[in-house]
Write a protein that binds this DNA or RNA. Structure first.
Length: 489
RNA sequence: GGCGGCGUAGCCAAGUGGCUAAGGCAGUGGUCUGCAAAACCAUUAUUCAGCGGUUCGAAUCCGCUCGCCGCCUCCA
């Protein structure tokens, strides 16, 4: 079985065939560092975190590069607004980015190059393009001549004529062709600037990725990723730059993920409908966000809503409750002797990992993979219920192994990493914070009710339960005593 | 206008032409329980936006219609 990945360039799913066998080289476009990150950025980081974890789980070595754009017009403008420097602003939001990434439990890429630390590489690349006649200086800037790259448009599947029909191209008399794009931007007085053969200036947006991917991954590498909105013009222009300069294919496989929407509209600052990662994490456990993100295939749009997050939380809780149940079983003094788990169930448990891989091999189908985890939870829950009172040690071992498999597979999506009791308690605390009652009061009422029930005073006992229910607290009477949980509204 | 995507149960969401259309949330009936909750069992789409076509066979392929969304400008 090989991993199949949808390639934007070909428009088809293709088997993963790394140039260097067993070693995947991956470049992902990171953030432009001038503001807090929103959940769209979280989806991007999480999608590629999952993809890299899956490659590694499948035995591949991975070199994962994700850049920081730390100089561009937005950064310059924002720094001016805040009366600070571009360096201070960019570094500040890189630090904030790491705060968010760490809270989400996202693994660091192997390399995280910054644009401003690779100016010489970009200048070299631009000089090569000029030498080949594919770029030209004009009025202090340098432009890429799209007419010199006949395949321009192959990633976005359109051609120059189509795009000019759109006619939303700004008139710029310095360009030979309206679609030519800037490689080097001459600086105005007071703007950050680096020396170059074409005068002081700064790099255009697209050139950094061509220069840095070449430096760290080579002229041709396996996978380049980013959001769907980067297909055009950013990635199209990278291809033009890299293939123009190197004369070789740039990237074998392009992966693009879908957007996060709110009320079915793309988040954007102009609509004011974007949510930052930290907004979300103030209300939900990071694993709930991860579970939500992976509940839909990465290329599809994903609509954020309160109910969607509550659904995700409920589903995740179900998996944690399953694990907690097996842990409790292991503590219930298992007996030696013959187990009672049947062959059919053993086979179903055994089949889980293969089914999971099959789903993930198919273009990282995390939605299907989650379904398989629920199938496993269902089998485990059923067995827990039907096992004899002191369970056989061999059966407990089988269930323990099954939950370990569940956690190992879930770890690819970064979920089920917490202690079940801790996760369930944290969720309880968070929900409780929004209610008009505290834990001490709940425990006091449970104790009072215990006394009533001991006297078979059901009426008073039920009255207490109803009183708590009215405040959003549900009770569960078990053999070990009464536990409580916050009711979903 | 050009290009691309989507439309599957109350909601979310898989489904790579062929066994009973995954799974989650919500709901209903039952087991359990003093009554409940959780869990389990059963149940919830004769049907995949609509209409045609290809095929022995289509949610899956092709065409058209309707609806929604994205890109073509900074954008994950």
């Amino acid at each position: 079985m090989t991993i199949k990945i949808f390639n934007t360039l070909s428009g088809k799913k293709q088997p993963l065939e790394p140039i260097e066998p067993g070693h995947v080289k991956l470049y992902v476009c990171g953030i432009t560092s001038y503001d807090y990150c929103h959940i769209g950025h979280a989806r991007s980081a999480l999608a590629f975190d999952m993809i890299v974890r899956y490659f590694r789980y499948r035995g591949y070595r991975v070199t994962y590069v994700r850049n920081f754009t730390d100089i561009d017009d937005k950064i310059i403008n924002r720094a001016a607004d805040q009366h600070t420097t571009t360096v201070e602003l960019a570094n500040r939001f890189i630090d904030e980015f790491y705060v968010d990434m760490d809270r989400l439990g996202i693994d660091r890429p192997d390399l995280e190059p910054k644009a401003t630390e690779h100016i010489p590489e970009m200048v070299d690349l631009i000089a090569e393009l000029i030498a080949k006649g594919m770029a030209y200086p004009s009025g202090g800037d340098v432009y890429y001549a799209v007419n010199c790259f006949p395949q321009y448009g192959k990633l976005a599947h359109r051609n120059l004529d189509d795009m000019q029909a759109g006619a939303r191209i700004s008139i710029n008399e310095q360009k030979r062709h309206p679609m030519d794009f800037v490689l080097w931007k001459g600086s105005k007085p007071g703007e950050p600037a680096w020396d170059s053969p074409w005068g002081p200036g700064r790099p255009g947006w697209h050139i950094e990725c061509s220069a840095m991917s070449r430096k760290y991954l080579g002229d041709t590498f396996d996978i380049h990723g980013g959001g769907k909105d980067l297909i055009f013009p950013h990635h199209e222009n990278e291809i033009a730059q890299s293939e123009g300069a190197n004369g070789k294919p740039f990237v074998n496989c392009w992966i693009h993920h879908g957007f996060v929407t709110i009320r079915d509209e793309k988040m954007s600052k102009s609509l004011g409908n974007f949510l930052t990662i930290r907004d979300i994490l103030n209300h939900y456990h990071p694993e709930v966000l991860r579970f939500f993100i992976f509940s839909t295939h990465y290329r599809n749009p994903l609509d954020f809503s309160e109910t969607a997050m509550l659904d995700a939380a409920a589903g995740l809780e179900r998996l944690y409750a399953c694990i907690a149940q097996v842990e409790a079983l292991a503590k219930s003094r298992p007996q030696p002797g013959e187990g009672s788990i049947g062959r059919k169930d053993l086979e179903a448990i055994d089949a889980v990992e293969g089914r999971f891989q099959q789903a993930m091999d198919n273009d990282f189908n995390t939605a299907q993979a989650q379904g398989i985890l629920f199938d496993l939870a269902k089998i485990i829950n059923r067995l827990c219920k039907t096992l004899p009172a002191p369970p056989a040690a061999t059966d407990v071992e089988i269930l323990d192994l099954a939950t370990r498999t569940m956690k190992r597979l879930a770890a690819i999506m970064g979920i089920l990493n917490e202690e079940p009791a801790a996760f369930l308690q944290a969720r309880k605390d968070q929900l409780l914070a929004g209610l008009d009652i505290d834990e001490d009061r709940i425990l006091a009422l449970i104790n009072e009710r215990y006394a009533c029930r001991a006297e078979k005073n059901w009426a008073r006992g039920d009255a207490i339960r109803d009183e708590l229910l009215a405040k959003g607290i549900e009770l569960k009477d078990g053999p070990e005593g009464t536990t409580w949980s916050v009711k979903r509204s």
